[in-house]
């Protein structure tokens, strides 16, 4: 199973998470977002970039409530809340946003 980006083949698991973290690119993110029926806006990118920075610092994809709390602290309560995040990523901000960000599935996410 794989995504196709600019002639490159990028492997993913049965749920669509890429298997090699360093394969990620912005183009790939757009490709993954398409399969999730998400049109990437600046607001989506803000969350995806936040997740990538979080992973870079702590080596984990945060659980949803942790992500929302961290976004609230960093971007304020208008964005750091369930409603905003689920409007951007209807099937779960941790799951969908992590997938698009090229991170592993959040620990404890089933």
């Amino acid at each position: 199973m794989s995504y196709q980006v600019n002639g490159h083949t990028i492997e993913h698991d049965e749920e669509g998470y890429i298997t090699t973290l360093s394969d990620w690119s912005k183009e790939l993110a757009d490709e993954i977002a398409k399969t999730e029926n998400i049109d990437m806006t600046d607001e989506h990118w803000e969350v995806v970039n936040f997740l990538r920075e979080y992973y870079d610092e702590y080596q984990i994809a945060p659980a949803v409530r942790v992500l929302i709390k961290a976004i609230k602290k960093s971007m304020g309560p208008d964005k750091g809340n369930n409603k905003y995040m689920y409007e951007l990523f209807p099937y779960g901000p941790a799951k969908q946003a992590c997938k698009i960000a090229g991170l592993p599935k959040p620990t404890g996410c089933v």
Binding site: Y54, Y58, Q59, I60, V66
Partner: peptide
Amino acid sequence: VKNFSPTFRALGDY
């Protein structure tokens, strides 16, 4: 293998 020592610093968020 993965260096998971940075993850201890995320525990406060949890």
